[in-house]
Amino acid sequence: MAPTAYVQPIVDSTSVFKEDLFKGKVLFCTGGGSGICRGMTEAMMRHGANATIVGRKIERLQQTAKELSAATGQECLPAQADVRQPASLKEAVAKTIEKFGRIDFVICGAAGNFLAPISGLSENAFKTVLEIDTMGTYNTIKATIQHVRASKGAYIHVSATFHHNGTPYQAHVSAAKAGVDALSAVLAVEEGPHGVRSNVIAPGPIDGTEGMDRLAPKGIDTAQLHGGYPVGRQGDIKDIANATVFLFSNAASYITGQVLPVDGGSEHLRHQFMPYPQMVLDPKSLSHMIKARM
């Protein structure tokens, strides 16, 4: 019988970290209405933080805020804003200060993505992703920095691993996330003397997220495409949540300006999502595998 790989367990943060770790603290999270950022927010709330979640769809935000408050016993404020519009972000920050009186932690998580080769990627589509990811991160920093300085708090920016090595059909996201990584590094250096830390979490493939639903090939075993994972499984939102709790905790007080891939080691295998070079030479032949429009 062939040997099988060990599978690392999925762990809930409450089994590792103190439940009142962030008591009295406040989180401000863009993109918190769903997916990874919702999971990050829930983890922070389960450890005592109150939170503001920011996004464009107020109905989704209101429903998510209600669910998060019920699940954690903490307060969650929904605030409608577009990260591309500095004025709306400033308004969301003002509502947070009015409600909670402070901002300790900021998650810059608003993002956009789709599959498109450079040859088929319009200038406007490229610009839009940079506006959401890179400019959105910058605008969020600008809107919150005075409050994070006052609380000696910290930032986490949600990036990706696409730009760590060339990933076909991801030029727009690769450029945008490289900018996010660079912003975080500068923020760490400039704001460190003011007591502010800044780090990046770069998720790998995370199961059950909108991003994976859009980008993962359908009808194919993604684990096989990636050549498996050194930890024996695909990522879970709780993996990102656990990294979030750690990086915002005092246990990470000496960690700033870093990019932390949370990907089960898959980056080191350097496999593409779809067969290469067929995916770039004859993309139409793989249309049955692609969920998102190119």
Rank of each mutant, 00 (worst) to 15 (best):
T256M: 14
D82L: 09
T244D: 09
E42C: 12
K142A: 08
T41D: 03
L27W: 01
C76N: 01
F248H: 01
G33P: 02
D213W: 09
S34I: 11
T137A: 07
S15D: 13
A2R: 14
V54N: 03
G73M: 07
H194L: 15
A49T: 01
A241S: 07
K218W: 02
P230Q: 11
V200G: 03
R197N: 15
Y138D: 09
T134I: 00
A154W: 10
S69G: 10
G136S: 11
H47Q: 07
A243N: 12
E190V: 13
T144W: 07
F126V: 14
G153H: 05
N50C: 01
G228F: 12
V54C: 00
A178H: 05
G32Q: 03
K127P: 06
M44F: 07
G235F: 03
G211P: 02
P203V: 01
G264Q: 07
E42T: 08
M294V: 06
G39T: 07
I220G: 03
I118T: 03
G39I: 12
K218D: 03
P217D: 09
M44R: 11
T64D: 04
R233D: 07
L286N: 08
A216L: 05
S119Q: 04
N50F: 01
G265E: 08
Q146R: 15
L286P: 14
V93N: 00
I107S: 04
G136M: 02
V173N: 09
L115I: 09
G192S: 13
F100W: 00
I36N: 04
Q85C: 13
F246Y: 15
R233N: 07
D236N: 10
H147W: 11
G153W: 06
D207A: 15
V180L: 01
G228D: 04
F162K: 08
H164G: 11
I118M: 04
A94H: 02
G227T: 15
R233Y: 06
T64S: 02
L260V: 04
R149S: 14
M294P: 09
R197H: 05
S119K: 09
A251M: 15
